[in-house]
Every structure is written in C-alpha cells, then in structure tokens.
Simulated scan of single mutants.
Amino acid sequence: MSCNLKTVPGMMSLFPARYSVDRHTDMDRIFSIHSENGSIFTLKPLDRESTPWHNITVTATEINNSKQSSHIPVFIRILDINDHAPEFAMYYETFVCENAKPGQLIQTVSVMDKDDPPRGHKFFFEPVPEFPLNPNFTIVDNKDNTAGIMTRKDGYSRSKMSTYLLPILIFDNDYPIQSSTGTLTIRVCACDNQGNMQSCSAEALVLSAGLSTGALVAILLCVIILLVLVVLFAALKKQRKKEPLIISKDDVRDNIVTYNDEGGGEEDTQAFDIGTLRNPEAREDSKLRRDVMPETIFQIRRTVPLWENIDVQDFIHRRLKENDSDPSAPPYDSLATYAYEGNDSIADSLSSLESLTADCNQDYDYLSDWGPRFKKLADMYGGDDSDRD
C-alpha cells in the first residue's frame, strides 16, 4: 500500500518549531513525523481494505518558547493497489438432474474483489489449464462478470458418479493481474419432468434399490442383538472354564478338608482324639497317632487298666509317666494342654446376719455422746444386756 505524504501547513514559519504526533490519535503507532521538517512516514504496513482513512493530530511547538504550540489535524487517505485475487461471491449448491440434456444451464456464478480499481472491476472465467476440456460441463463467460455452467452430455447417473468437481479459473484486468481458482461442487439429483429437484441424498439410492427406512433400522437392530449374544456367549464360556477348588471327594490334596455341610469340627479331622478327657474311666487301647504317620510301626504296648473313680490329675500324671518311660514312643511335634482346677474348697458364709450370734459383747455407750440425733439408736444398743435380750 502507498501513502500520500504532504507537508504540514505552517511548518516553514519564521519561528522554528518542533513537530510531534499526538499518540492519543495514533494508538497503534502507525505513523511518525520528523521533528524538524515535519515529514510524515509510516512505521507499519497499511491495508486499505481494512482502514481506508487515518486521522491523526500533529503538534507544533516553538523551540524558543515551549508555551507556544498548536495542534493540526491531518487526514491520511490510503491509495489502493491490486493485491487481492477475485473469488466466488458466495457458496453455490449446484445440482444437475439425471435426465438433463446437453447445453442445459444448471448454474450462474459471480465473483467479488476487495480491491477498488479506478476503472472498475472486470473479471474473466476460463477452465483451468490442467483440464482445458471437461467432458461433463462447459464454462461460458457471459462478459458481465458472471459465468454460466452448461451440461455437456445427455443424462447423468448417480450410481456411477454422485458428485462432480468443476475447477474454474478467475482473474481480473488490473495491474498486477490477480487470479484464483474456485471449485464448484455439482451433485447429481433426481428431478421431475420440469427439472425440479426431488432428492440428492444417499437414502434415495437405497430407496430406489427397494429398501425402506424401517428395513434399514430392523437390519441394524438385528446386528446389534447378534453382537450382544456373541458377547454373552463368550462370557459364559469363559466362566465355565474356571474349575472349582475341589472337584470331588476323591481329590486328595495337602491341607484341604471338604465339608459338605456346616458343622463337622473335631469329628471330621484326624488330628487328635479328645475322648479320653471326656470319659477318663473308659478303657482305651493303644492307638497310633493319627496326626503324624510314623516311619516304622512299633509294637503296641499294653496299658494298665484304669481304676474306678480315679482322679483326673492322677490319671494325667500316670499317662505322662507311661509315655515318658516308653522308649518306643517317638517325640512327635505336638502339644496337648490340659486345664485342671484342683480340689474344691469350702467357703465360709459372708452374711452379716450371723454377727448377732457372736459371743463377744460390744460396747455401744459411745452412741450417747453423739447428741440427740442418735438418742434412739443409743437407747436400742446402749441399754443393759437384759434390755436387749
């Protein structure tokens, strides 16, 4: 862009002055001025299309007397150069009928340019050099800054080609010449006998094949249901592959005990036998320990028959003595703890009622010294023995 520079009036005065730009009128700091001769020059590029005019204020101040100053408005007009290319004036939704005939007009296009040449706009339309001859459409320049799009063949098929792209070269007559390429999108549609468009969407092609919207929805639902069934079947199959911890009772594993119902407890384990403690008078035959299997089978030893009405403590001591003196009994890693309370003891009565039967006599004469409040109590316990009897 160019700027028309002019000399500020009065700058060649007899009194030398200093010039400056009032920044309140030039907030973007686009212009500057020479402080001595008043020449205005630009600091940033200018764009006529965005701001064709700029209004600034120049301040002139005398050098010898700074109190003497004046403010001069300056109007700057931006001159135009051809720096924008022409383009379509709007977005065109162009269609062609399937039953169109050759030479039929389907669209008229116009262009616009942001530049403002002195002689006015003049635009030209041509096919792009890469495709000078289009077999489907013809570009006709109307010589009035518009162009017409004409059909070139008889009939169009949506099944073969539903959309055509037509590039158009547009240029102006100003200097330097600016040009651009606009692409026109042309859809193939179904039309009636008068050339009125009926449908251009893909749904129309499906309907023409015999499938309705309800049929498409039903097919989509069936596909979704099949996918859900496949996912459920895969999940059930994966769950069935997980075997339980114990399949049957015959499965022998270390430290695993199977209970078919609640309860069980000591009757289901082979660790110990507590029958001896429950009935110490019962006769027992020597048995092998069932918690640890010994490597060698020792000779079964005979135990002395239990006495009748034997004390539990004596019974335990005898059993311990027999096991300690038996050389065939291995030292198994087990521990049996027995809680024995011992013989009972007779406890005396703690009742205070028996204190009346004590032989010792107590002296209650001190109650008369406690005052009138304890007089009745002193009469009851402080009298003679004959009175109390």
Rank of each mutant, 00 (worst) to 15 (best):
K160Q: 14
A190G: 08
K160G: 05
C200S: 02
F171H: 15
L184N: 00
L211V: 11
S162G: 05
I177M: 12
L169P: 00
I168Y: 09
S208M: 09
I168E: 08
D192M: 07
Y164N: 00
S162C: 07
I177L: 14
P167Q: 10
F171T: 04
A190R: 02
C189M: 03
S157L: 12
L166V: 05
R158K: 15
G155W: 08
T213A: 06
M161G: 11
G155D: 08
A209G: 09
G182R: 06
S179F: 11
C189D: 06
M197Q: 03
R187M: 09
M161A: 12
S201C: 07
C191T: 11
L211W: 08
Q194T: 05
S157H: 10
F171G: 07
Y175T: 11
G195F: 01
T185V: 13
N173I: 10
T183L: 07
S157N: 13
G195V: 02
S208E: 13
L165I: 01
G210V: 11
S201E: 04
V206R: 10
Q178G: 09
S201V: 01
K160H: 10
Y164A: 00
P176S: 09
Y164D: 00
E203P: 00
T213V: 13
S208A: 15
T163N: 05
K153T: 13
R158N: 10
L205S: 12
D174T: 13
D154R: 05
Q194K: 03
G210K: 11
L165P: 00
C189K: 03
C200R: 04
S162K: 13
L184Y: 00
C191A: 06
G182T: 07
K160E: 15
Q178E: 11
M161I: 14
L169E: 08
S208F: 05
I168L: 06
T163P: 02
A215Q: 15
Q198D: 01
Y175I: 12
S180H: 07
Q194L: 04
Q198T: 05
Y164F: 15
A202W: 06
N196E: 06
V206Q: 04
Y156D: 13
T183N: 13
V206C: 09
M161H: 13
L169R: 14
T183C: 04
T213Y: 02
G195W: 00
C191M: 02
I170P: 06
D172A: 14
L184V: 01
Y164V: 02
L184S: 01
E203Q: 13
C189Q: 05
Y156P: 07
N173L: 10
R158H: 13
L169Q: 11
Q198V: 09
G214M: 06
G155M: 08
S208N: 13
A204K: 09
T185A: 03
R158S: 14
F171E: 03
V188R: 02
L207G: 08
A215L: 13
S199G: 02
D154Q: 14
L169I: 02
A204P: 01
S208G: 08
L166D: 01
